[in-house]
């Protein structure tokens, strides 16, 4: 197997212990100068790949400009993990599907062609959108849901130089190659995640629904950012977590909100569109209704009701 970059190590070391990942070479990148949070020329934010989750969450610019990012980070993992794990590592983390981590189980993501034990197995926590016959595992990151909602860009550095990738194109749906989680090229390294400028004021927030109140991955989650001017919603950015093989952008919900005035009826109608195209498995049908309610509540929390 090829090499792996290692920074905080909170995902990779676990996977190596379980023998899911067995890299021949580890390249420690933790000393690279990628720990800055900077405001871009256009007024967006650029978060260095090695900024710790805790640092990013507490950064005054992040907190004031994009509370949805701070909240998603602070609802993730544990304080100890947030102090170690980096932003780059966070979006690189691999699924928590139990079959992926159990090396005795069939898993196309871990071992292409071996099958998917989750399809017929215990799949209560698995994805209802973005799935394929090869893989139904969710992407576990919370902050990636916020990045997806805000249409972030991932900046990469590789043998062929720098390039930027839209967040929606960075994480890959499983399709027929579930072993590929990201659209990285050989040797490429994440240098930063850039959140573009959005019209202000931008109200935003993250809601996470899970089996226990702490240290748990989402069953469903919703990242919502709204720009309201004169009582009218001019911009809406909405994405859901815990339901997709990648963070799930909800354009149908966004379209329904644009140009409308806040009301409970609007939130309900918009959220009705959250689960379009969902394909539930044997144990996760509940996620369809739960997702709608999660989105509805978070729209109400961020947008309020007059």
């Amino acid at each position: 197997m090829r090499g792996r970059y290692i920074a905080g190590g909170t995902t990779l070391v676990d996977l190596m212990r379980e023998t899911v990942e067995r890299p021949e070479t580890l390249v420690d990148i933790s000393a690279l100068p990628l720990r800055e949070v900077t405001v871009t020329e256009r007024g967006g934010l650029r978060i260095g790949a090695l900024v710790r989750m805790a640092e990013a969450a507490a950064h005054p610019k992040v907190r004031t400009l994009y509370p949805v990012v701070s909240q998603a980070l602070e609802l993730s993992a544990s304080a100890q993990l947030r102090n170690m794990a980096t932003i780059g590592g966070n979006i690189m983390q691999r699924t928590r599907c139990a079959y992926f981590r159990d090396v005795t189980a069939a898993c196309n993501k871990r071992e292409p062609g071996s099958g998917c034990a989750a399809l017929e197995g215990f799949n209560r926590t698995h994805a209802i959108v973005g799935t394929s016959r090869q893989c139904v595992a969710t992407h576990p990151s919370d902050v990636a849901v916020a990045f997806a909602a805000l249409e972030a860009r991932v900046h990469l550095l590789g043998p062929d130089g720098e390039r930027g990738v839209a967040f929606a194109d960075f994480l890959l749906k499983p399709g027929s190659t579930p072993n590929r989680d990201q659209s990285l090229r050989q040797g490429e390294l994440i240098t930063s995640v850039e959140i573009p400028a959005h019209p202000r004021p931008l109200k935003s927030g993250y809601l996470k629904v899970r089996d226990r109140q702490s240290y748990e991955f989402p069953l469903t989650s919703a990242a919502v950012a709204l720009h309201v001017r004169g009582g009218v919603i001019h911009e809406a950015k909405v994405a859901a977590g815990g339901v997709g093989t990648v963070p799930w952008k909800l354009p149908a919900v966004e379209r329904h909100l644009i140009g409308e005035r806040s009301s409970q009826a609007l939130w309900t109608q918009a959220a009705e569109r959250a689960a379009h195209g969902a394909r539930p498995l044997a144990h996760n049908r509940f996620k369809i209704e739960l997702l709608k309610r999660t989105v509805e509540r978070q729209l109400r929390i961020v947008g309020g009701t007059p």
Binding site: A98, D102, T104, A105, G121, F122, R124, D211, R212
Partner: peptide, 14 residues
């Protein structure tokens, strides 16, 4: 521990 107990059936199985 408040387990998702039904998951338990699968792990011991293997």
């Amino acid at each position: 521990f408040l387990d998702a107990a039904d998951a338990g059936h699968d792990l011991p199985r293997r």
